[in-house]
Nucleic acid binder design. Structure first.
Lengths: 162, 162
DNA sequence: ATTGAAAGAGTCTCAGT
DNA sequence: ACTGAGACTCTTTCAAT
């Protein structure tokens, strides 16, 4: 099991380097990335194919500045449930609200933790008051509106041995 | 200012459709996306170029299943500061910790809100105890470990008028 | 603004090492 | 496994509408 990192395939340093590089910029050509990592473009291609087949790489996503699209409000919501057994049914209801972009079941103070993206405070208020409060099983919520995003970045990936 | 959505360029329904589609899958060819949206591949190209020049589209990112790379622990950290004026200096220190992938300055209970990705609980414990507690200005922290990610998705983008 | 076609660049396959 | 070259596909440019 040496060198294993929670997956079935064996990944070496080059695989991690490719992932790290392309997490930030997936548009770089295989030839250019190969030059940067001192292998041929063909090798990059083979590695990425392996990573896709293993399900580690799931494709690429457009990186969009949603503020410029009019989405000015990001907030985090701590959710208290009446009973923690209600998790699945409440999660199902929360998924119906498109403004909620992420939901985690967490340890600690709150039962669940959500992230919400809205165009403005009015829309946030509507979701919190008119939609969330109607869901059976939610005892109460605490909202943390983001006044500033200091940074958001990708995790620095390394082999287990490093 | 009609039709404006927080940016300088005017975006129509097609622009939003392109963004929505490619936020989920940036690998689709212009020809195929054009077919889906009933325009030519050339039109898709022109629109994306416009969006890039406006800074709305910032490129593409590889979508990676980090659990398979051995990163099993996601946690959220609510941070209490001794004085809220310490925000900038504390943010600078937090940015030095690569496991912290996101930091927001927030309203409500906490001064700041961080997200952290670690390989295991031991590494999380190390960051929380050995690294965070050493930063001057942090009064205390509350940690919420994610036991399950119910869902994570892109925001549904629409024009202001819709 | 949109289109379609030609030129240029990148991906993918495969035989050789 | 890695490489490099050829086949193929996609992006990019541009003249016409």
């Amino acid at each position: 099991m040496q060198g294993q990192t929670g997956t079935k395939v064996n990944l070496d340093k080059l695989d991690f380097q490719i992932i790290q590089e392309m997490m930030g910029n997936a548009e770089i050509s295989y030839a250019d990335l190969g030059k940067k990592l001192f292998v041929s473009g063909g090798t990059i291609h083979v590695r990425i194919k392996k990573l896709e087949e293993a399900g580690i790489v799931r494709g690429t996503k457009l990186n969009v500045d949603i503020k410029q699209l009019g989405y000015d409000v990001i907030a985090f919501i701590g959710i208290f449930l009446e009973k923690s057994s209600l998790y699945d049914t409440v999660a199902k209801e929360l998924k119906k609200i498109p403004e909620i972009v992420r939901l985690n079941y967490t340890t600690g103070n709150y039962s669940m933790f959500a992230e919400i993206i809205c165009k403005n405070i009015q829309q946030l208020r509507f979701v919190l008051h008119d939609e969330l409060q109607k869901i059976k099983g939610i005892e109460r919520t605490e909202t943390f509106i983001s006044l500033e995003e200091s940074f958001i970045r990708d995790v620095r990936v390394t082999k287990a041995s490093e």
